[in-house]
């Protein structure tokens, strides 16, 4: 009952309820993508039936439903769009400012969302060449890969 005992206000009566949960998150059929980031590889997917090459990993084609084949994405690409965030969700608030980009790869039909680490504060623009970089210590989330200005 400790969880329901901290009074914040009396009229109306408002309490703080420690409402937390540890979610057991499985990457399930996307697991291989995250494992491969530890090997310095970004996996994408290709549908042999549609000849569509996905820049974000998915096991099944969204056009025809066929199972896709894994492909290795290039480690260089171009910025398709970008934003620099000075605020964030609570769990990420200590990381601001950070820059998100959508990366376009040569001969790949769709994009990949990632962070751009821009230590030298280069002017970020659409079309800018970027290269992938991998975290030395794998954390097993999508931030294991990020991009730098090429």
């Amino acid at each position: 009952m400790e969880k329901y005992s901290k009074v914040m206000k009396t009229d109306p009566l408002v309490i703080e309820w420690d409402y937390n949960l540890n979610y057991i998150h499985s990457y399930a059929q996307d697991s291989k993508f995250f494992v491969y980031l530890g090997r310095g590889i970004i996996l994408g997917s290709e549908c042999k039936k549609c000849n569509y090459r996905y820049g974000t990993y998915r096991k099944y084609c969204m056009f025809c439903g066929s199972e896709t084949y894994d492909i290795e994405l290039p480690l260089e690409g171009k910025i398709h769009s970008f934003t620099t965030c000075y605020y964030a969700g609570e769990d990420f608030i200590n990381e601001v400012p950070y820059t998100l980009i959508l990366v376009e790869f040569k001969n790949i039909n769709s994009l990949f969302m990632s962070r751009l680490v821009n230590k030298e504060n280069k002017r970020v623009e659409i079309g800018m060449e970027v290269k992938a970089k991998f975290k030395k210590l794998q954390k097993f989330n999508v931030n294991d890969v990020y991009f730098l200005p090429a």
Partner: peptide
């Protein structure tokens, strides 16, 4: 939750892109 959320947990960023 696999590919987007862990990048910043922030919808405004998606609309900004």
């Amino acid at each position: 939750a696999n590919f987007d959320y862990p990048l910043g947990g922030f919808y405004t960023a998606y609309y900004a892109l």
